[in-house]
Simulated assay, not measured.
Amino acid sequence: MGRTSDARERILDSSRRLMRTRGYTALGVAEICADAGVKKGSFYYFFDSKQALTVETVDGHWAEERRVLEAALAEPAGPVERLRALVECLIGTQRTDHSESGAIHGCLYGNLALELSGQEPQVRRRLAEVFDEQVGMVARLIGAAREAGLVGREAGADALARSMVAQIEGTVLLARVRNDPALLDEVWPSVERLLGLA
């Protein structure tokens, strides 16, 4: 049996880390390959293009993040507590980044969405799907909180969930610009006001 190469996984790992810290446009295939310790020919053996790599990078990042979120949502707690756990999971990476490197790198999906707003349609479609899945998770929790009489019925759960995800993304963006993790402390109180929990 031949030796199994981990070159593909190394390329994906490097891509995910470098795209979070450097962005998409400033990052070249040669730099990704150098960081991963693989030859450029290996890149094109596994990926048709940088755009294809980016879609797979988003897929892998979301698969890992979704597992963490689903574990938090499986906790035997009330819907508001699970909603808060979901919020903490979504912003927790930023706190970890700052404590480990002194910098907030932002959300991979939000960073790519801002950078690629008018280009790379495959990447934008995949990002939209990821955000839709996040909104769906939040909407289900808001629906459960409503059933428990904890949240009013003035606005639809989907609209509230979209507002909540946008609020998280916006706060992460501001925290990144200022490199100030203290701004992340504002997310949950803002969610409480949005949902009428405060």
Rank of each mutant, 00 (worst) to 15 (best):
V151Y: 01
A148M: 04
L150K: 00
I142N: 01
E56H: 12
V87M: 07
E133C: 03
S163P: 03
E64T: 14
A52T: 14
R82V: 10
R146C: 01
E154W: 02
A63W: 14
Q94S: 14
T96P: 02
V135A: 13
P76F: 08
L160M: 11
R67K: 08
A155R: 13
Q51I: 13
L127M: 07
G136E: 11
A103Y: 13
V55S: 00
E129C: 10
S117N: 11
R125P: 05
V138C: 03
R82H: 09
V58K: 00
L108D: 06
G102L: 10
L53P: 03
A148N: 07
A159W: 05
L141W: 05
E65L: 14
R162W: 15
A113W: 10
E65S: 11
L73F: 10
R162S: 10
L150Q: 09
E64D: 09
L90Q: 08
D97C: 01
I168H: 09
P79D: 08
G136D: 14
G102T: 07
V68T: 15
A63Y: 12
V135P: 05
L86S: 06
E154F: 11
A128W: 05
E120T: 12
R124Q: 14
L108Y: 06
V165G: 04
C89N: 15
V80Q: 08
L160W: 01
V87W: 03
A161I: 00
A63D: 15
R84M: 12
E100L: 11
V58Q: 01
T54H: 04
A128H: 12
L90Y: 14
E64H: 06
A77L: 15
R66V: 03
A85M: 09
E154I: 05
L116K: 04
A139Q: 04
S163N: 12
Q134E: 13
A113G: 11
T54M: 07
L83W: 01
L160A: 02
R126Y: 14
E129P: 01
H105K: 06
V123Q: 03
D97V: 04
D132G: 11
A113T: 02
T93Y: 13
M137P: 01
A166K: 04
R140N: 08
A148V: 12
A161C: 10
D158M: 09
E70V: 12
A144K: 00
R140A: 11
L112P: 00
E154K: 09
G78R: 02
I168E: 03
G136P: 09
L69M: 14
A166D: 15
G118E: 15
S117P: 04
A52F: 10
G149P: 02
G78E: 05
C107K: 01
V130W: 03
H61R: 15
G156R: 00
L73K: 00
E64P: 06
D97N: 13
Q94T: 06
I142S: 02
D158G: 06
L73Y: 02
P121T: 08
L150T: 03
Q94L: 03
E129H: 07
E75D: 14
Q122V: 10
V80E: 11
A145G: 05
E129D: 09
A128I: 09
E120N: 06
P79C: 09
E147N: 00
P79N: 01
L112M: 05
E81I: 06
A139K: 00
E129R: 07
E81W: 08
A103L: 13
T96K: 14
G78F: 04
S101R: 15
S99A: 15
A77D: 12
E115V: 05
S163G: 14
I168K: 06
